[in-house]
Design a protein around this nucleic acid. Structure first.
Lengths: 140, 140
DNA sequence: TTGGTAATGTTATATGATTACACAATTGCG
DNA sequence: CGCAATTGTGTAATCATATAACATTACCAA
């Protein structure tokens, strides 16, 4: 159907050592992490330089296992059920607790595409990041 | 109606010296500029340190005269007709020529709000940045 | 086995943004 | 006016994010 989706099925075993270590940190974190935070946490595993983290992150993002949050300069493990199949995604970012949730809404994707197309713009990639209060923090 | 919209009407005359200089650079640029690019261009006007730029940018963004593009770490002058009245905005960013256009679509705002609300999320601010090819570059 | 590709390690540097502190200009008000 | 509060400015240092350049190692495939 889609002409450029990921046909990867990278389970953890297929990752390289550095990729696994970085993925491990992101998976066990309950929110987004900056590259340098990941670096610090992996120093005891032999990491010495930012590039070790950034290279792993590049691949993990490419595989669709990790998302980059532009408005935070941080990275988060993908929590969607079919991580490698979803297309356009929006993120909600709670300004109080820092928690990030993914929203996958085909209608939104269509809406954005149509909106862009109306001005002759060919849409390649959407960044949608919503700031506010999550359900729990909104009650406070 | 809205409880925190801008009631400012800052015409250029009301800006401070540094704010005017920064605004001048952004207005005359035909695309987004990074804070350090602005700094370099204003050195001949006496600018010496990043903070002079960032402080001016903070105010200009607050006034609604300038937008920050999260995915570029750059800033662009607002080109919308009623710069201080529009609410939610999406940006198209051409990956070839770097040109940025603003889209102001109330339906999109509603859609995002509804999407967030469906998970109990209280939306404060939306970041929507669309990457792709502008009309001119798309023809190539 | 040999040659190419991908991954890694290391140093240095580029780029983006803020903290801390001192001082000057402007505004508001008694 | 005279004074205080606020806002704007200047400067240095530092923190935070990301990439360039180059050498080496691991792995896979002909």
């Amino acid at each position: 159907m889609s002409d450029h989706h990921h046909d990867h099925h990278h389970d953890t075993a297929a990752l390289t050592k550095n990729q696994s270590l970085v993925m491990g940190q992101l998976s066990s974190a309950n929110g987004p992490l900056s590259a340098y935070t990941i670096l610090d946490r992996l120093r005891e595993h032999g990491f010495r330089a930012p590039l070790q983290v950034y290279r792993a992150l590049d691949k993990l993002v490419e595989f669709g296992m990790v998302h980059r949050l532009e408005s935070l300069n941080a990275f988060v493990a993908c929590r969607q059920p079919g991580c490698d199949t979803h297309e356009t995604i929006a993120f909600t970012i709670c300004e109080t607790c820092g928690q990030v949730a993914e929203l996958s809404d085909p209608e939104l994707a269509d809406h954005l595409k149509a909106l862009a197309a109306a001005t002759g713009f060919v849409l390649k990639k959407s960044t949608v990041e919503l700031r506010g209060l999550c359900r729990a923090c909104g009650r406070a």
